[in-house]
Design a protein around this nucleic acid. Sequence first.
RNA 1: CGGAGCGUAGCUCAGCUUGGUAGAGCACCAGCUUUGGGAGCUGGCUGUCGCAGGUUCAAAUCCUGUCGCUCCGACCA
Length: 573
Amino acid sequence: MYWTKTLIPTLREPPAEAEILSHKLLLRAGLIRKVAGGVYTFLPLGLRALHKVEQIIREEMDRAGAIEVLMPAIQPPEIWQQSGRYETARDVLFKVKDSGNREWVLSPTAEEVITGTAAAEINSYRQLPKNFYQISVKFRDEIRPRFGLMRAREFIMKDAYSFDVSDEAATASYQKMYDAYARIFERCGLKAFPVEADTGVIGGKFSHEFMVPAETGENEVVFCEGCSYAANIEKATSGIPKTATREVGAAIEKFATPGVVTIEALNKEPYKVPANRQIKTLIYIADSKPVMVLVRGDDQLNETKFMAKTGAVAARPATVEEIVPLLGAHPGSLGAVAATLKSQDISVFADERLRGANDMTTGANEDGFHFRNVSMERDIKVTQWLDLRTVTAGEPCAKCGKPLKIRRAIEVGHVFKLGTKYSEKFNAEYLDESGARKLSVMGCYGIGVTRTLQAVIEQGNDKDGIIWPLSVAPYRVCITPLNVDPNSEAMKLAEKIYAELTARGVDVILDDRDERPGVKFKDADLVGFPIRLAIGEKSLAKGEVEIKPRGGALQSVKADTVVEAVTKLVSKS
RNA sequence: CGGAGCGUAGCUCAGCUUGGUAGAGCACCAGCUUUGGGAGCUGGCUGUCGCAGGUUCAAAUCCUGUCGCUCCGACCA
């Protein structure tokens, strides 16, 4: 490709709309342009890089035995009602109406469609296992799209769905995808690592997310350097000890705490109750019902864990207006001591760390008063003990005891073992060897393709611009003649090298713009081509061409060996 | 959805406090010079000042509403 024949609108200054580096570079290098919030056009260079990522995914999916299909972006709402996700995923579902006022759902994923297809077309164990994948546009009505392609309303996703005869077979399919994902991200030049993850609204048994470490990531990952443990903070646990048990103290005792409504205030004079001897009482509305959630004073509730472990579909903190009639006191004076509860119907979920704790302090459900000498076992009727707290850095790893660390990361892929959740809803059954009807066991697997592309940029850049890995670069080689007059030696040589490299199947772009060298060099660095060839009078006089790897050292080679040298450099991966 | 900020040329922004002829740099076009890391000079093109309403002799500027964008939070398959 000749530079002047395509469109590469580079920008000297980062547009005000971009905050994070990879987003700025996507815009400055002329890869994408915004059409609306969270909605982008891929310009020629951006599309080429996107296609490279897609091709890597295709090759690895095919290698893992998955088969490519293409499902519709507009889907009938009936199947979403059938799966139940019309309600549970309501907030992110885009819906449109046709001219006959019929509603359609814009697909955010495709479990419903593919399970319907499997139910109709797979009848025998002889047809299993099957793993269908597609690479297509997905829609999600994000409350807040941000960071360019990182969280968009419309984006490209690779989604795959496996069907197996048994749980064991499904685990094998899951493992295949897990391994394929590791290869995909490695081939994209990304340092991605798998972490244990929550399954969220999509449901299922267990899952892993593939994370790319980045300060701008929207996820926090807990990991251990002593062993292999790594988990999303929404899922992570630690080996932190339970609350120390003390001698069973005197009976529960109420004391006045005028104006004290925080853990911190109760920690101070004159009360001096350490946070780790306090019970934090939170009121949540879970699926429209109020519940009490207890964690230790120095712990934070993990809402994702709470929802996952109680099975709640929707949960939010209760408002003051809801709390006061319920408990007779304001937040800050709340407690779960059974004797003070107006209704014994309310469920009480307590964090495991509080199990067996005594000599604790908590609110008395009376403004201005707390209880001391509270025993979890004796004084509080706990409905269910659960792991509900958020892990913090430095806690001992549950597996090996080493201190845990936390870092931010970008989620680029997610693998789920689904079980039969969707098979049941859509009657995805097959006949086994004995002629018995059985449900297919499913898995589902997603890669944010456009997000992966941005993650590559987020990880590969310097002050001058993008540093693409060879595998994803829109062009692997940029030829920069410093004189573009068709009759000049530089341009003639440039065209010859261009033709020879192209004939060898190397992606190459020739910067034929009549610009000053500085402009061309700056743009080549900004866009980040892995190899740049400079052809100017200086080196021509010596019969040489300069080879400059992006971010590497410049070397001069004889003009007649340059094609060979470059071919060698770019075929490394 | 809560909080904050911002909408002026293709891009980055000034002008708004204190109302009075629409600005700069970059980009773009023409010419001359220049030519190994974002050149110089001369001339030129470019705007419903986000939109609607109001106040006023007069509104980019003040007021009200609205839409959009960005960030923080909540949310996140």
